[in-house]
Computed example of a mutant assay.
Amino acid sequence: MSTPAIPNPAAPPADARERLLEAAEALIYAGGIHATGVDAIVRAAGAARKSFYTWFESKDALVAAALSRRDERWMRWFIAGTLARGRTPQARLIGMFDVLREWFASAGFHGCAFLNAAGETASPDDPVRVVARDHKARLLDFVREQTHAWAREAGVDSRVASRVARQWLILIDGAIGVALVSGEADAALDARAAARLLLEASAPDSRNPTDSRAPSRRAAQRKEKDHE
């Protein structure tokens, strides 16, 4: 997912509010909130400063609105990419990291806009932090849908599925952070390998439960301990 192009003032005119949001999102994602002034956003939007105050009461309000706009687009992109990766829940879960790798390899990748923005805000009640928190909640909800679908197929308890979803989100955000700092798109592949191990560790014993000759995992562990 590349960074949106900064609006060209010579291009056909668009709604001033949308141009301001597009410019704010692009500039802030590339350079950060504190490093981006209102004047720079107004210039990039090809708008008059008066139009900024017509639509937004402050820079913070503009930033929060721009991030909300990005949240909608990013989630649509990620969900569509994930669903296209496979027909089974497990294939879709693993495929999330292939979707991320494509993003990491793009020229406009600057990490997670929401983690970046949250890192620049001190108060948990800051509107920008609230948008970032809501974005992660939406992402977790989507991941949870997939882990619960996987759990139903694999015979895994729903509580385990919820735990796997939270751990999956950590793998996603961890991959994003490593890719940003290292510049290595293959951080997504490392996270994918860890994700496979997580599913394997969370699934029940693969042996046929109806075969009475196959000892349970716990019984096997006890037997091994008895022979130590």
Rank of each mutant, 00 (worst) to 15 (best):
Thr3Ile: 10
Thr3Trp: 02
Ala5Thr: 11
Pro9Arg: 07
Pro9Gly: 04
Ala10Gly: 11
Asp15Ile: 01
Leu21Gly: 07
Ala24Phe: 03
Glu25Cys: 01
Ala26Gln: 00
Gly31Val: 03
Gly31Ala: 14
His34Glu: 00
Thr36Ala: 05
Val38Glu: 07
Val38His: 00
Val38Ser: 10
Asp39Arg: 09
Ala40Phe: 08
Ile41Glu: 00
Val42Trp: 02
Arg43His: 14
Arg49Phe: 07
Ser58Gly: 02
Ala61Trp: 09
Ala61Cys: 06
Ala64Glu: 01
Ser68His: 10
Asp71Trp: 10
Asp71Gln: 12
Arg73Gln: 12
Trp77Asn: 12
Ile79Asp: 11
Ile79Arg: 12
Leu83Trp: 08
Leu83Ala: 14
Gly86Val: 12
Thr88Asn: 09
Thr88Lys: 07
Ala91Ser: 13
Arg92Asn: 03
Leu93Arg: 06
Leu93Val: 10
Ile94Pro: 00
Ile94Met: 14
Phe97Lys: 04
Asp98Tyr: 02
Val99Ile: 07
Arg101Ala: 08
His110Ile: 00
Glu120Trp: 00
Glu120Cys: 01
Pro124Glu: 02
Val130Ala: 06
Val130Met: 06
His135Asp: 04
Lys136Trp: 01
Asp141Tyr: 06
Val143Ile: 15
His148Cys: 14
Ala151Asn: 03
Ala154Val: 09
Ser158His: 11
Arg159Lys: 09
Val160Lys: 09
Val164Lys: 05
Ala165Arg: 03
Leu169Ile: 12
Leu171Tyr: 12
Asp173Cys: 10
Gly174Met: 06
Val178Leu: 12
Glu184His: 12
Ala187Asn: 01
Ala191Met: 08
Ala193Tyr: 02
Ala194Met: 11
Ala195Phe: 15
Arg196Gly: 09
Leu198Gln: 06
Ala201Glu: 11
Ala201Val: 14
Asp205Cys: 11
Asp205Gly: 08
Ser206Cys: 03
Arg207Gln: 08
Asn208Ile: 12
Ala219His: 13
Arg222Pro: 06
Lys223Asp: 15
Glu224Tyr: 14
His227Val: 15
Glu228Met: 13
Glu228Ala: 14
Glu228Val: 13
Glu228Ser: 14
